[in-house]
Structure formats: structure tokens, C-alpha cells
């Protein structure tokens, strides 16, 4: 089994930028990658495939050809809400991004996470006056538009500003690596700090 590595995920995601490959895969599958709790998504012609893009990159970048198995720790066929619940239950859902994290963008109008993608780099951080901090990120996303809009239908590299104060979160899946967890236990430190040091 391959060790969890954000470089593998990012390399896979970057290779798919500008292609429609994942869109085809996601739309061929009948899995519900759109958020099932949001009724009006079903009115639309197609389900959103932003989460399918992340899952596709994660699964195939961590697949060991010799065994035919992938070490990607995130369960398949889950919705964005379930992904957030998965992260909360394992204490890997944070308000601060790291390279390779999965970002979850919150939509205040739907009161749910509306978009996900992969953090390629944390470019900058700041704070609006009297408000929570924000992070400027380079991300790779599926089903986005040239202006970063939802359901844009493209796989693109995007410069995006996310703000935990608005509800945006970051899933640090690297903390699920057994080696990281073992090291964290032996040093009595949280897994997040091991990842940040690495």
C-alpha cells in the first residue's frame, strides 16, 4: 500500500487540469456526488462532479498497481455533507489550510457545503477588518468555471479566497496516515502539527 502523500494527489490533479476526463467519469456513474440534502440540485440537468474529481484524483494517485488497491482514506460515494461529518468525526476538519488539503466551501444560502477542491498552495493570509481571517489559495477543482463559479463544467487551477469565518473548512486527510498517527501518539502531539512540520 502506498503511504499517503499530498504530492501524489496534487500531481494527479494537475495532470487533469483542462481535460474533461473526470466529468465524463462522474456523469457516467450514477453515484450521488451532488449533495442529496439540497433538493433543488435534482432540478438541474446534471449532478455536480467537484467531489467526484477529488475522489478520482485521490483514489488513482494512491493506487498501488502491484496489489490493485488504493490507500486513499476517504470513503467513496459520499456527499459533501458526509465528507464534512467524516472529517469532524476524525478531528481532521480545520479552519487553517495546508498544501494538499481538501477545501470545503460553505454556501450560506443553502446552509451546506457547496463546493470542494484540492489546495495546491497557500499563497497568502490576511483578515478583513474586525472579521475572521481569510486565505488566498491556489487550488485545483473540478466542475468550476473560469471565474470560479459553481458548476462551471471545467477542471481548472484557480486562485481562490476562502474564509473560515464564512464557514469554509479544510480537510487534512494526510493526518489519517497510520505513520503520522503513530508518530503523533509517540510524541504526544496532534497529527496536524506533525503534518505542518513535515
Amino acid at each position: 500500500m502506498l503511504s499517503l502523500s499530498h504530492q501524489l494527489l496534487i500531481a494527479k490533479a494537475r495532470a487533469l487540469v483542462g481535460t474533461g476526463l473526470v466529468a465524463e467519469i462522474a456523469l457516467d456513474e450514477t453515484s450521488s456526488d451532488g449533495d442529496a440534502s439540497v433538493g433543488f440540485l435534482h432540478v438541474r440537468a446534471r449532478p455536480s462532479w467537484d467531489l467526484a474529481f477529488v475522489q478520482h484524483c485521490g483514489y488513482w494517485s494512491h493506487r498501488d498497481p502491484s496489489t490493485g488497491r488504493s490507500s486513499w482514506p476517504i470513503p467513496r460515494n459520499i456527499t459533501r455533507s458526509e465528507l464534512a461529518q467524516f472529517g469532524t468525526a476524525r478531528r481532521i476538519l480545520h479552519e487553517r489550510p495546508s498544501t494538499g488539503d481538501i477545501f470545503l466551501q460553505y454556501g450560506p444560502s443553502r446552509k451546506a457545503f457547496v463546493h470542494v477542491g484540492i489546495v495546491m498552495a497557500v499563497l497568502d493570509e490576511g483578515a478583513y477588518e474586525l472579521e475572521a481571517p481569510y486565505f488566498d489559495l491556489y487550488t485545483v477543482e473540478g466542475d468550476t468555471g473560469v471565474h470560479g463559479q459553481l458548476r462551471g463544467g471545467k477542471t481548472l487551477r484557480v486562485r481562490r479566497r476562502l474564509c473560515p469565518g464564512r464557514g469554509d473548512r479544510f480537510l487534512s486527510w494526510m493526518e489519517l496516515d497510520p505513520h503520522v498517527q503513530q508518530l503523533a501518539r509517540s510524541l504526544s502531539l496532534p497529527a496536524a502539527s506533525i503534518i505542518r512540520c513535515a
Binding site: S109, Q149, R161, C163, R166
Partner: peptide, 19 residues
């Protein structure tokens, strides 16, 4: 700008009304 319109589906009337 502060409300970040990328978090809204601008093809949906509800989201446009919210903004």
C-alpha cells in the same frame, strides 16, 4: 465582494435573491 459570490449558484433565482 465580502459575501464571495463563488459560493452561490448564480443560475438559481434563490441564490441571486439571497445575494
Amino acid at each position: 465582494w465580502r459575501s464571495d459570490p463563488t459560493a452561490y449558484d448564480l443560475l438559481l433565482r434563490d441564490d441571486v435573491a439571497y445575494l
